[in-house]
Simulated assay, not measured.
Amino acid sequence: MTFRLTDDQRELRDEIRRFVASELTPVASTLDHSHTYPRGVLDALADRGVTGLTVDEAYGGRGEGHVELAVVVEELSAGMMSVGAALALHLGVASVVERFGSDALRGDVLPSMARFDTVGALALTEANAGSDKAAMETRAVREGSEWVVSGHKQWVTNVREADVALLYAKTGPEAAAPENVSAFLVPTEDLTVDHDWAAIGGNSVPTARVEFADLRVPDDRMVGEQGMALVERGRLHGGVNLPARAVGIARAALDAAVDYADEREQFDQPIGEFQGVQWRLATMAGRVDAARLLTLRAADAADRGDPDAGAQTSMAKVHATEAAVENASDAMDVHGGVGFTSEYPVERYFRDAKLLTVAGGPNDVHRNTVADAVRSVPTE
């Protein structure tokens, strides 16, 4: 079976590729090394309607699906992973609001999120609740028409630039798990940043730990059914953005290695003419294609509502993120000594790629998801 993008999807891909070449690639190194948030780049994407890519047209978005999300995030991440991450995290929050929020809440926030006037962040993971989200300690107690929320969140990417955070808290007894967690859309100004993480990758979209005590949230800011937030989250497949980011890095590393192999000469010939380098480039190309196909298959399954979409996304995440690390490492080797300097982007590819193996859940957890799916397949 041949999988091909539609004409509209290819047109979208080419539009973003041109944007990356003209607006992102020239500033990526400066943004990364200065740890500067890419607001100008994201505003330019907003002008093109990309910050509302998956938001329904009724709310000012483009109404695209997971395949289009994967295509756009790959292209942006090939220029700079932080930009792909910022867009995907923002759209992930919008998707939860659109799918599970009340009519009033959707009408209130989605149009401004599509315009990027309101920027979203995710507040889910805690110090003792990483892969095991049910272990979260943040709790919300109802008082009249409000909820009083206290706790912390360990990894809130983009919180200093965001306007609202999708915050998860326990609202029911432990015995009811996983149907004891609710989600709330809260202003980020109500969250106190108590630690900025000095990460080695994703420099332009920093992550922080936040705390909050006796945070009062109106009942109408609850997103979805009370106690069902984790269950509802499992019905979405926005996680396809993670392998898409990795595909972008893997492809950028390959392109950088090819360019350098063609221009760098040793022993009176370009190093790309040595068989060892050629074989390395061929292996890198295979990794990119396999990662992209797995990612697009998972995105297509999500768009079709395929029950296997979750396992396919996990498979794509494992393969693509590890392909990105391997390609970035190989690209550094092709570059030799200069690959270990900040003069070339391959060191950034390596740092950003390694982040993706743990972001969105460590790869071994995703391997468990794939293994569970394999073991549940009935035998003939």
Rank of each mutant, 00 (worst) to 15 (best):
D47E: 13
D163T: 10
M332L: 14
D47L: 10
F100E: 01
F100Y: 11
V247M: 01
A198F: 15
V186Y: 05
D259K: 07
D300L: 11
V41M: 02
G248E: 00
A88F: 02
S182R: 02
G272S: 06
F116D: 00
A94M: 12
A323R: 02
I249C: 00
D303N: 07
D108V: 10
L293G: 07
L355F: 08
T357P: 04
V247P: 06
M136V: 06
G360E: 03
L12E: 01
L230H: 05
T51C: 07
V186Q: 00
V217Q: 02
G63C: 09
G120A: 11
D214S: 13
V193N: 06
L281F: 08
F274R: 03
L69C: 03
D352C: 05
N363G: 12
P187F: 07
G360K: 00
G65N: 10
V374E: 09
H35Y: 13
R142E: 15
W197A: 07
V141I: 14
P345D: 10
A311F: 06
G272Q: 01
I249S: 00
D364G: 09
F184Q: 06
T188H: 00
R17H: 11
L5S: 05
V247K: 00
V55W: 05
L122A: 04
R139C: 14
L356S: 07
G107A: 12
A302Y: 00
E273I: 12
D262R: 14
G202L: 07
G172N: 07
L105D: 09
D306H: 02
D194T: 12
D43P: 00
A257W: 04
A165F: 07
R348Q: 10
L167N: 01
E57I: 12
Q9E: 07
G305W: 04
E189M: 13
R209C: 06
T6H: 11
W155V: 08
V50N: 02
V71W: 03
D103T: 15
A123N: 04
A129P: 14
T369Y: 10
I271F: 00
A371L: 13
P307N: 09
L69I: 07
L45W: 02
G360T: 02
G63P: 01
V318S: 08
